[in-house]
Design a protein around this nucleic acid. Sequence first.
DNA 1: TAGTGGTCTAGACCACAAA
DNA 2: TTGTGGTCTAGACCACTAA
Lengths: 243, 243
Amino acid sequence: MRRIDRTSKLPLYHQLYQILRSHILSGEWQPGDMIPPESELIARYQVSRTTVRQVLDLLTNEGLIYRQQGRGTFVARPTVEHTLVRIVNFTEDMRVRGCEPSSRVLFSGLVSAPQDIAEKLEIEPGAELARLERLRLADGEPMGVEESYLVHRHCPGILQGDYESNSLRDALARNYGIHWTHAKQSIRAVLATREMANMLAVQPRSALLFVERVSYSQENVPVEFLRIYYRADRYVLYNELQG
Amino acid sequence: MRRIDRTSKLPLYHQLYQILRSHILSGEWQPGDMIPPESELIARYQVSRTTVRQVLDLLTNEGLIYRQQGRGTFVARPTVEHTLVRIVNFTEDMRVRGCEPSSRVLFSGLVSAPQDIAEKLEIEPGAELARLERLRLADGEPMGVEESYLVHRHCPGILQGDYESNSLRDALARNYGIHWTHAKQSIRAVLATREMANMLAVQPRSALLFVERVSYSQENVPVEFLRIYYRADRYVLYNELQG
DNA sequence: TAGTGGTCTAGACCACAAA
DNA sequence: TTGTGGTCTAGACCACTAA
C-alpha cells in the first residue's frame, strides 16, 4: 500500500489523489465496489476530512467514483460518455460499448514531420516521427482507422513493439515513462475517400466521424498526434452538458 | 444586489453559486474582469472561506472563471470548447467562433409526438409538442438546421414568440420559469438528404455533423428534444480530455 | 510589503440509508 | 441506532504577484 510522503513538495491531496486513482485504474477496486469511507481514509492516511473530500471531489468530477449520501462512495462503471472526458483506449471504449475489440497494423515506420503535424506537435518540420496506422475492429468488423504520430526523440524504438495485441499507451508508460496528462481534440464529419472506404468496408463517400487529437505528457509536452476515422454507421459519441 | 437567505433550505454555497454565476452570465462581470477576492466575498456574504472556495471551484470546473495565485480570480473568456461542456446558445456559439449569427424560421407549429421522440422526452406517444425548425446562419451563410421539439404542456403558447430575433431559451426562462439544468446529447456524422442539402446550400450527400440533445429542466424533467444538422465544412467541435 | 489564491487542520451539526 | 456523505465554521501557514 502506497503511503503519503509528508516531506514531499507535492500537496497531500495530490498524493492521495494519485493513490486512490491508481487503485481504481489498476482494477484493484472494481466498478460497483464501495471504496473506504471518508473516516477510514482520514485514519489510514492521517489527513483531515477536508483533504479527503477534496480528493473525492476530483475523482467525482472525473467520473471515476460517485457518492450516495448515507450509503457510501463507489467506483463508477465506465460509460460511453467518458470518451469525451478522459483519454480512453480504443480497447476500453469498445468494451464499454459491448464490443470485442481487435486491431490490424496497416503501417509502421519512421517518417519526417509534415508542416501541419509539426505545428500541432510544436516541433520543427522534418523532425522524425514514428507513424503507426491501425485498422480498428469491433466484433471482427471494421470500426475505424487510426493514424498515430509520435515525436520519436521522446520514445526512440517505440515501433519495435507489437501493437496488434498491445496498447501503445501502455508501452509509452512502461518503457518511456510517458503518461498523458491531457489532450486537445477536434471532431468533424467527413466523407470516406475510396481508399478509406476500402479499409473500412463501406461505400466510398460514406459519412465518417473524424477525430484529431494532440496528447500531452507530464510537462505539457505534445508527444502524439492522432487521427481517427470512425464509421458513422457504427460509431456515435455521447456526452452530458451542464445548464 | 441579491443576498443570501439564511432561512432557505438551499445550501449557502448553492445560493452564492447562483449569485456569482448570474453576475457572469448576465454580462455584469465581463470576460477578463477580476471578480471580488475571496476575502471580500467572505465579508460581503458572511460565509466562511471554505464555502466561498467551494463555489469558486464549481465555477472554475464549469469554465466560467479562472484563478491565478497572487493575482486574483477572473471571468473567463467563452471558448469553442464550451460547446461540449455547457448548454450554449447558437448565438453565443457563433460569436465565440467569430461569426455573426442570424436565423430563419422554417416551421413553427404543434405536432403530436412520434414514438422515438416520446421515448426520449419520457412522455406518451401522441402528446402535444411544439415544433420549431430554424435555419441557422453565420455571416449570412447557412451553418445548420435546427429542429426543436418542446413538451407543450410545460410551455403552452410558446410558439407565439418571434424566434428569428429572440432566443427560445430566454423565452422559456422568462415566461415559464424553465431553466436547463443539464442535457444529454449524441454526436454523429451523416449524409445530407436532398432537402437538407437545399436548405444548407451544399451538395446532396455532403457530410453533416448531426447532434441530438435532450434538455432537462429543474426537477430533471425532459422538456426539449433538439436535432441539429451542421455543415461539416463550416462546423467543428473542440474539447479537452483529461489524462 | 501587502494582497491574492493554495493547502490544511479540527471540529460541528445535518440528512439520509440500512439494520 | 449507527454509519455514511453533505454542509459549514474559524483559523493557520504557505506561495505567488505586484507595487
